[in-house]
Structures are given as C-alpha cells and as structure tokens.
Design a protein around this nucleic acid. Structure first.
Lengths: 188, 188
DNA sequence: GCAAATTAATGATTTATTCAAG
DNA sequence: CTTGAATAAATCATTAATTTGC
C-alpha cells in the first residue's frame, strides 16, 4: 500500500507539447440517456455525490457514451449552481423590490448539507480513482429499494419540465447506493 | 510524525464494527522541505502549474514525504488565494477610501490556459491544464510578481523583508530562487 | 515541565463567477 | 442562449502553535 497514485498519463496522442497549443477545447456532450440518469440521481436527492458515487455514475454513463469522472463532477456542480441561481431569480422576482438583506448567505439558513465527503471539488482527483473494472454497477437503474408508497417526489421515472422549484429539506439520498455508507458528516 | 495519510478520499478502515470508524480525515502535513520547494516554485512565477507540472512537483515532493497530486494542487490554490487576500487587505488599508478601481493586475503570467480534454476519448483527468507557459523550469521568473515569502525560514536569499506587498508592477524581476533547479531533473 | 484549553495556520470542500463551445 | 469547463472566493475542518494552570 505504499504505492498510491501513479502516473497514468496517456491522455491524447503523444507528442511533444513544447509549443503545441490546442485552443480547441471540445467539451463533453452528454447523451439524452446520460442526462436522464444524471437528472434522476440529482432529483433523487444526491446533489453532490461523493467520489465513489461519482465513479459509479461515470461508469454507468459510459455505457451510453464516453464520459469522464470530471464530466460527471462538473455536471453536478453546474447543476447545483444553476438550480440555485434559478431559485434566486424566482425568489427575487417574487420579492419584487423587496430588500431581503437579512444576512449574508453564509450560514445558509436553508442550505442543507446532508453529506460531505470526498467529492473532488475543484480538486483534481487525478488518478486517485480506483478504476475498478467492475463493469457491473447498479445493474439496472432499478432493483432499488422499492419504496412503499413513499412520497417520491423525485421518482426516477420522469420529471416535469420545470423542476426548479423545489425546496425540499428532507434530503435522503434514496437512489440505489446500497453501501454508500461513506456519509460521514462533519464531526461536531 | 511519519504518517503517510494523504488520502483524499473516503478511506474506510477495514473495521466492520459499528464503532466509530475514523471520521477524522487527516490532512496532509507538508514537510519543511516540501514547503520550501513549493514556495520556491510559487515565487518563481508558477502560481498555477498545469497538470503536467503538478505531477512533476508531486513526484519531487514525494521524496520528502507522502503527498498526492491533489495536495499539490490544493497548496497552490490556497497559496494564490491567500496571497491575493493579503494583497487586498493591504491595498484596502493603504487606499483607505480610495477607489480600488482599475484592473486587478491582470498580470500576464497567469494566462488562462486551454487544453484539449477529449473527455469523450479516455481522459479521466480532471480539470485540464493548458500547457505550461514557462516550460523551462521553475527558476524562470516571469513578470508575475507575487513574491510572498512570509516566512524567513523560507527565504532563499537575503532579500528585503518584503512579505507580500508587492503591488507595484514595475517588473523589477525579483530574484529568482533557482534552488529548485536541483529538483528539476527529478524525472521519475 | 507537561497537558488541557485557546488561538492561529492552513489543508480540503463547497459555492459563485467566468469563459467559451455548441 | 444554454451549458460544460475552469478558477477564484468563501467556508469548513484539522493540525500546529500558543497560552494558561497545575
């Protein structure tokens, strides 16, 4: 175990990048199926999947098209950001000319962080990923615990085209992670 | 002292007990030598090393203790942030009621980088780096003045006790610590 | 002199902002 | 315009300094 991340290199075609400039940054274009999956997970409450989950999700998405861990991470990050911004816009609209200068959004009166784990953050997880070859993931998006008549406002089935209006504080990641026990909240 | 705990992810102890696992996430504690190297590089102008460089730096630092790529990345990120904050504070203090207008020293050293990710390919690399502008070595001093040698112990040369209040873009080419030169040829 | 309590530094995460491809 | 990608700012959490009391 003395060994950790080793240079995996192998990025693009070899070549001396002495002065090689590649201003073209092709970005990932998620497939509809991938978006479906991502949205489902996000709406399931897992808005900030830990690394482990990120890898799993990535593998899952990979079945529908090439995708990297970073793409998944970025997606969730942007998703959160975007949702929040939308929310704020709506709030502002509703408030009208109100000055809700209550307090700096630092305490996050409504910001609920249900879990904080290694999520790569802006940090480059680099090659720290296990890179397990376990192709089998959740299997199918199903086989999850069949909730019994639970108010599943975030069902994986589908979603309204306007899902940016939820403020559910009861976040219980209920996706499928059977062994996602890495939810270690900050010790107080 | 010798703790190689540099993990960046959730590392569950093998214990399957219901007892407290180990919610404590030990963070990397850089060795003095490592800090010296990092500071040298930073002061050399490379305030935001691309991935390639990051890996190299990591390998370098590894000689003095366990460290991961993420640690290096974090270090530089925090360093930049702190330096900037200090600068701002000082600036504010000096300015008093001045107008901090003008461009925040868009120093040219920290140019945005572009790099092809080709996520659709097979590059699980996270945040992509561009190409190192100063591919030479960390000793190449750029116009990017950001000398922030807060600690004397890290002072490579008997330089003026100028902590980090260098807001004068006179391009005085600060002394470039070429100490890192030694580490440069540390290709693994 | 040491150890608990407090403070200061600083590594690690999250969020907001920005830039650019489609 | 939408949205993936990247960074900086803000924040949190843990470790090291330091203070304080015995």
């Amino acid at each position: 175990m003395e060994n950790q991340a080793q240079d995996s290199g192998s990025r693009r075609s070899g070549g001396s990048e002495t002065e090689r400039n590649e201003p073209v940054r092709s970005r990932w274009t998620p497939k509809p199926e991938q978006i479906l999956i991502l949205e489902s997970i996000f709406n399931s409450g897992m808005v900030n999947p830990p690394k482990e989950e990120t890898v799993r999700i990535r593998k899952l998405l990979e079945k529908f098209g090439a995708v990297g861990d970073a793409n998944v991470f970025y997606w969730f990050q942007n998703r959160r950001s975007r949702s929040r911004r939308r929310q704020r816009q709506i709030q502002a609209s509703v408030s009208g000319g109100e000055q809700p200068q209550t307090q700096p959004w630092t305490g996050g009166c409504d910001t609920i962080q249900y879990e904080n784990t290694a999520a790569a953050g802006s940090a480059p997880s680099f090659y720290n990923f296990p890179m397990s070859s376990s192709s089998s993931l959740y299997g199918s998006s199903s086989s999850c615990t069949e909730n019994d008549a639970s108010n599943d406002m975030f069902s994986l089935s589908g979603h309204p085209a306007l899902p940016e209006i939820d403020q559910n504080p009861s976040v219980h990641s209920s996706f499928c992670p059977s062994d996602v026990s890495d939810f270690q909240y900050q010790s107080g």
